[in-house]
Nucleic acid binder design. Sequence first.
DNA 1: TAGGGGAACTTGTACAGACAAGGCCAGACC
DNA 2: GGTCTGGCCTTGTCTGTACAAGTTCCCCTA
Lengths: 242, 242
Amino acid sequence: MAARYEQIAAELREAILTGVHPVGSQLPSEAELAARHAAARGTVRQAVAILAAEGLIGSRQGARRIVLGGERSQSFAELHSFAQWARSKGHAVGGEVLAQRRRPAGAAESARLGTAEVLEVLRLRTLEGEPVLLERTVYASWIASAVEELPPDCESVTQALYDKVGLVFAYGEHLIDAVAAGSEDARLLGVRRGSPLLRQRRITTTQEGRPVEWSDDRYRAGSVAFSIRNSIGANPLTRLAL
Amino acid sequence: MAARYEQIAAELREAILTGVHPVGSQLPSEAELAARHAAARGTVRQAVAILAAEGLIGSRQGARRIVLGGERSQSFAELHSFAQWARSKGHAVGGEVLAQRRRPAGAAESARLGTAEVLEVLRLRTLEGEPVLLERTVYASWIASAVEELPPDCESVTQALYDKVGLVFAYGEHLIDAVAAGSEDARLLGVRRGSPLLRQRRITTTQEGRPVEWSDDRYRAGSVAFSIRNSIGANPLTRLAL
DNA sequence: TAGGGGAACTTGTACAGACAAGGCCAGACC
DNA sequence: GGTCTGGCCTTGTCTGTACAAGTTCCCCTA
């Protein structure tokens, strides 16, 4: 059973998406929402805070909340797991492991993952049958054997590892930039060498903050984009000079 | 005077950054923090919620909060304004307007900005004297004259418009992908045609949700990256199929 | 008619208390 | 020794109240 504030948030989201509260219009006041849902104002505030964090609504002290945008997305899983994202959007997702081997960790990998040995995996992912993503992932040694036992065409590694060993990918740090396709990238993704790729490098940790994997994902240009809504109040995305 | 919970958040952030609470360690409990700051538990929870949203700490019901990462960044301004971001990081920022003209809005622009006429501006931005960013921005007509009066080498348009007419850029929606440099892009950024660029398209609105500008920003590869921390709980960044 | 003042409304901040849910650990038990 | 259980601790959820701060809009006045 979801928390009360999550139910209220879901109802409000639904109301916005179905046009009950069109873009640009004002939301009911907290007091009214509280009365309508028979909840305390604090609970309603938790609900609208979720929508604000999603970028769906904006708020300023003294004025009613405003509907900023329409359709929105959900969660961490969407950014972390290609398969979960694709499936939730109704895309046909595929993939296969092209190479997989254990090797000693380099200095940077050892520092990031905290292990002396790593499992290196090269995966090609497809969307609607077209190759769009090349994943070069390095797993910490303590999870390596579980990864090795997965079938090569496993769609969602995230899901599989959760089912298998109860591993939860809880936190991620991502670095997004553009790079030119190397010769291997070009061959596997079916593009010309030097053509632009969208690169997402990420390190993922468990709930306890223990690093699990370090990955370099390269998307064929024109296949995938990242979307962010932000506001003066809060946003986690930043720019970095290289 | 900042709010109480912001002060507590700032103190905690400082304590994490200076190593009082090292990465991987546990934070004091809410009860203890409340006692230490002579605040209610709810206030402390608001403070730690900020740090959690920044990706600095993680939390799970029942267990103490864990320090996940070190240095972090701040704000919306950082993503919105190139100049404000660069200055806050201590980079030498420059820029100039290469072209500027009024013209009728296309259908897509009219839908996005809600005006029939727009002001189109082409700006080249430099970091440490090197050209890194090409901005193609389209402003809504109601702000056009204020933009036209800015000096061509104005560093921060955001700042200038705030000082001039009190305009606040409050909400933004961003789309990030990779593209190949066109011939104009290549000439102005000093790269070869077809080389990868990191593209950030964004639409920005006022506090009231009124659209102000629509921009296509292209970064030279290797000069700038975007960084995101996220968690199971919340994150605003998502992937989009194209 | 244009502008100022102010009341009513709305969101932001803060406090206090209560219970639920889940993690952690030590001691008991097999 | 290993395992399980129960109690304690910590975070999550929810309620209710009070006041501060900012917005909106109407009415009165010049």
